[in-house]
Amino acid sequence: MFKNLGAMGDMAKMMKAAKEMQGKMAQLQEDMANMMVEGEAGAGLVKATANAKGKVTKLDIDPSIFNAEEKEVVEDLILAAITDAQTRAQERAKQEMNKLAEDMGLPAGMDLPL
């Protein structure tokens, strides 16, 4: 009479695990907004800070590079620092997602959506 209850119990466990994972993913998304990484260019003359979601939050430029004749060089350094920060942010986000997947017992290397 109750022989299908075992499968329903397994389904309930899966639903609970999915809801738990959804909560952890939401928390991680929130945490990533506060995780900061720094990218740099020109041996540290230009630095860009971004959160793990890739949003650039700060730009630091050494005043020694301000020279009207080198405007294009400065622009290139700024772009390079921002790109570096965003790349590091993506790497950090991937590391955090891999940790979450591992904590949840998911297979190694499983790509979770960011």
Score class of each variant (00 low, 15 high):
K99T: 12
A41Q: 06
D60E: 13
G39A: 09
A50R: 07
G109Q: 04
L112R: 10
E38Y: 13
G9V: 07
D111V: 12
M21V: 03
L45Q: 14
I82V: 15
M97S: 01
V46R: 04
E75R: 14
V74Y: 00
P113E: 04
D84Q: 00
M104D: 02
G6R: 04
N51Q: 02
A80N: 06
A52K: 06
V74W: 08
M15C: 00
V74H: 06
T49Q: 11
A80E: 03
A52E: 13
G105M: 07
M25H: 06
G42K: 09
A12V: 10
V73S: 05
K55L: 13
A93M: 11
A33K: 15
M14Q: 15
L59I: 15
Q95P: 03
K19V: 10
K19P: 02
K19A: 12
A52T: 06
A7V: 08
L77P: 07
I65P: 00
A17W: 08
K71E: 15
E91V: 02
L79W: 03
A7S: 11
E30L: 04
A108F: 05
R88C: 00
E40K: 12
Q86N: 08
A43R: 10
I65N: 08
A17F: 07
D111W: 00
N51G: 01
E38D: 00
G54M: 09
E75D: 13
E30Q: 05
V56P: 02
A43E: 06
E70P: 00
S64L: 02
K71N: 12
F2D: 15
D31S: 02
M21G: 00
T57A: 03
A41I: 07
E91A: 10
